[in-house]
C-alpha cells in the first residue's frame, strides 16, 4: 500500500553517504524484517527501491549514495514523499547465535535494522565493510551501536585492510567460518559471486541482490533474475547462494 511520508532529517555520514529520516504519516502496518526494502516515490521525479536502514515507530531511515535523479531527489528535496512497502522477503535471525555481515559499498545500508534485530534476539553480529575510497567510510557503530566486531577494508588502502571486502572476507572466513551460523552478504554482484564461490562451502551464505525494481508487486517482471525464474521483488532480495548462483554467474559475464 502507498503511504505518505515527510522528510524530516538528513545526515551526511561520509564523503558520499547520506542517511535520511522520513516521518511516516501512518505506520507501515507491519514490522519490517531486516533486508526488506521500500520503494520511495520522489513526486514528479522517480520511484527508487531502497533497503530499509532502520524503522522505529513512525520513522523510516534510508542510507544511500547519489547515483541518479532519484537519489539526488532524496538528498536535495524536502517535503512529502511516498513509501511503498515493506517489500521482499527479508531475513529472520531467530535461529542463530553468531552472524557475520559482509557489505560492499552501500551494501552497508540494511545494517542498522539488522543490528537491532540481532540485539533483540541475542545474536552476536560481526561486520566486514569494504569501500573503494576510504573517504566513503564512517563509523558503523554510530548507526548500529550493538554490533560486535567491525572490520574495514578500502581499496585505496588508507583505512583497514588493503583491498576489497570480498578478499578480506575470504581470508577472514578461511580461519573463522566455523564461528558463524550464517554469513549475510550485501553488495555488487561480482562480490556476491566471489563470496559464494570462496566461502559457500565453509558456511551458510545468504546474499541480498539488487535489480531494477519497477512495480514492486511481481507484475512488470523487470526484476527477473535471469536465467532463473525468480523475481527479486517477490522472491527476494535475500537468497541462499545455491538458489541464485546461476544468476550471479550469468550477470558477471556481461
Amino acid at each position: 500500500m502507498f503511504r505518505s511520508a515527510k522528510k524530516t532529517r538528513i545526515m551526511i555520514l561520509s564523503e558520499k553517504y547520506y542517511y535520511v529520516e522520513f516521518s511516516l504519516l501512518e505506520d507501515l502496518g507491519v514490522e519490517p524484517r531486516p533486508l526488506q526494502f521500500v520503494n520511495i516515490w520522489i513526486p514528479g521525479v522517480d520511484e527508487v527501491p531502497m533497503s530499509i536502514s532502520q524503522y522505529t515507530e513512525e520513522k523510516l531511515y534510508v542510507l544511500f549514495k547519489v547515483v541518479g535523479e532519484g537519489t539526488r531527489g532524496l538528498r536535495d528535496r524536502w517535503g512529502f514523499f511516498g513509501v511503498k512497502g515493506p517489500l521482499g522477503n527479508g531475513i529472520s535471525l531467530n535461529n542463530y547465535s553468531r552472524v557475520l555481515f559482509i557489505a560492499g559499498g552501500t551494501g552497508i545500508a540494511p545494517l542498522p535494522l539488522l543490528a537491532r534485530h540481532a540485539e533483540r534476539n541475542g545474536v552476536e553480529l560481526d561486520v566486514i565493510w569494504g569501500v573503494k575510497k576510504s573517504s566513503e567510510l564512517f563509523d558503523v557503530k554510530t548507526l548500529a551501536p550493538s554490533v560486535n566486531n567491525v572490520y574495514y577494508a578500502s581499496e585505496d588502502c588508507i583505512v583497514g585492510y588493503c583491498g576489497r571486502a570480498s578478499d578480506l572476507a575470504e581470508r577472514f572466513l578461511r580461519e573463522h567460518a566455523w564461528r558463524y551460523d550464517i554469513v549475510i552478504c550485501v553488495g555488487p554482484k561480482n562480490m556476491l559471486l566471489d563470496i559464494c564461490r570462496k566461502a559457500g562451502s565453509l558456511v551458510d551464505v545468504y546474499v541480498s541482490l539488487e535489480a531494477i525494481v519497477k512495480c514492486g508487486f511481481g507484475a512488470c517482471g523487470s526484476c527477473i533474475l535471469k536465467p532463473i525464474p525468480k523475481l527479486l521483488c517477490t522472491d527476494g532480495p535475500v537468497f541462499k547462494c545455491n538458489e541464485v548462483y546461476k544468476h550471479l554467474e550469468w550477470n558477471s559475464q556481461y
Binding site: M1, F2, N39, W41, K84, K214, F217, C220
Partner: peptide
C-alpha cells in the same frame, strides 16, 4: 521501454 516508475500503486 515502458514508463518510468511509479508504474503501479495499490489503492486504499
Amino acid at each position: 521501454e515502458g514508463y518510468n516508475p511509479p508504474i503501479l500503486v495499490e489503492l486504499r
